[in-house]
Amino acid sequence: MSTPARKRLMRDFKRLQQDPPAGISGAPYDNNIMLWNAVIFGPDDTPWDGGTFKLTLQFSEDYPNKPPTVRFISRMFHPNIYADGSICLDILQNQWSPIYDVAAILTSIQSLLCDPNPNSPANSEAARLFSENKREYNRKVREIVEQSWTAD
């Protein structure tokens, strides 16, 4: 069945294949255009360097008028990521606009990794360490990076 949401997602996918931004990849499940798997690579020369973080994006028929539900599958340690992997990011909530496609969503999440907003913490421990003890924060991030290689 072809709906506006599905048609739009096909175009999102085409764009992501033809013109993939650095350090991200994503694709719908074989038989379900509404559910995507994605990987974000930790940006070079940051504590996140080398990490491969998996996410899922669940779209509804309201897309692109409503944002998808995006969630990390890989374990994360970040001020704006909850224990269950959901992400506190304005463009995925009240600042959403259909202007963002999947590539733009993943790029925004990638830049959130190195540029957290400790003022709206989803993980208060990570937010505290980020502001008070950068060394310990970075050590925890490295642990998460290493875990990202072994987790299935």
Partner: peptide, 10 residues
Amino acid sequence: GYADFTFEDF
């Protein structure tokens, strides 16, 4: 610099 497919449906 907006991608066509993000606005053409609207």
